[in-house]
Nucleic acid binder design. Structure first.
Lengths: 239, 239
DNA sequence: GGGGAGAGATGCCGC
DNA sequence: GCGGCATTTCTCCCC
């Protein structure tokens, strides 16, 4: 039928259309009764089981799993094991509609624009987006003061912590901002530190909590433009 | 080559091995330079682009997208649009290695054991897992007081809020517990409400925060056994 | 490896 | 639709 081990050894990706049931045991336990599915096995050990609808795989094994394909009484079985994670998954196939395998050569990595990091970069470069006179001091300071997106001071010299959210700020964002403000107060030994959430939207609850804690909200849209020179560079590489 | 629209109209799932580049615009913007990938299109409009490694699709469109497949100068293009979500994704294919399509009939739905819900069920049935004399009053109270996993009172009659975590409780779990305890205090007009986190593990930070707030931790493992009768029932259905 | 946080998070449920 | 929350979340980064 197909030598899965040999195919994976060659670094191929395998796609199987089949009727199967799936059992999983590891972080949880699951059983999927028989039905038609799409099974994908990648060279790195990744295994995905997709039903005919929906975004997410119904079952999966992460990178590092080892697989064994064998014939059984009523059909075939694909056993996947990840010893390190103490996980195993069995696929019992009663019908195999098709098997396709292909060596995939892919050195490309995705470029993404419109992330929280892009927002903090933009605010660092255009501080007026927060308010006139805002002067950023540091950005994405992981080690010194935490994970603060943008840190600076305002026209009056007060310290300001800005927390960016790429879509909607919720009450978690307010708690996050509060933790950073408290940390700065302690580290700098100052009494008053301003907190600002920069996001395109904010939930009503978050807005109320924000004002209750004396912080404020500034509507800022994340930059969604891929840097054109990068894009052009990549595209030139196509030819 | 392939009539994607017709295949999708028939409710088929399509798998394409190809060399392609991918552009996405919607909640963010992305560009993936050329490389060999696996493209999956489902009947519900779901589209997945997988690189030869890793668990997650590098690009995707969720259920509800519409697709158009066309020939271009240098190859083929698959355009996907989701008007409602203002998203679109273009796949430019220079080489198509293979196309496979299959009608998938699948009425099965997965059974999962070992979730947080399973933990709260277990604690409701075996309250001694929390402590001798613990008496649960309600479970999974969504509407009245939030999303409290288990709510009850102890041997002394004090109200107790239990928050379950299926793996490791972190400081978010402590904040969550605190919100519920405060809510109960307000609703019931009582001064003292106990808070307990039930989980197999807890982080050091969470432990410290928990004790600082006067709450406690109880080690509880989530039940990972699928109910045998259910499993048997399903398996009988196979024949 | 643990901990904290983002993600085009996704998916579910309740209002 | 929004909001809160679990997820076999996954992924990245730093300590």
């Amino acid at each position: 039928m197909i030598d899965v081990q040999e195919s994976l050894r060659k670094g191929e990706t395998i796609v199987i259309f089949c009727n199967c049931s799936v059992s999983y045991s590891g972080r949880a336990e699951s059983y999927l009764p028989p039905g038609d599915r799409l099974v994908i096995v990648k060279a790195d050990g990744t295994l995905l089981v997709h039903q005919p609808k929906g975004n997410m795989p119904v079952n999966y094994m992460k990178e590092g799993a080892t697989h064994h394909f064998m014939q059984t009484d009523g059909g075939w079985r694909l056993e996947s094991i990840n010893i390190a994670h103490k996980e195993h998954l069995d696929i019992d196939m009663s019908i195999i509609y098709s098997v396709t395998n292909q060596l995939l050569a892919d050195a490309g990595s995705i470029e993404l624009a419109g992330t929280e990091r892009d927002m903090s970069d933009m605010i660092f470069d255009q501080p007026d987006l927060i308010e006139p006179g805002f002067a950023p001091l540091s950005r994405e300071e992981h080690t010194k003061v935490g994970f603060i997106d943008v840190f600076g001071h305002d026209r009056q010299g007060s310290l300001v912590v800005v927390e960016c959210k790429r879509y909607q700020a919720d009450f978690h964002a307010v708690h996050q901002l509060e933790r950073y403000v408290e940390k700065i107060k302690k580290l700098r030994g100052v009494d008053k530190v301003r907190g600002i959430i920069a996001a395109p939207h904010i939930t009503d609850n978050a807005k109320a909590l924000l004002e209750q804690k004396g912080f404020s909200f500034k509507m800022v849209e994340p930059p969604k433009r891929l840097e054109r020179h990068k894009k052009q560079q990549k595209r030139l590489g196509e030819f």
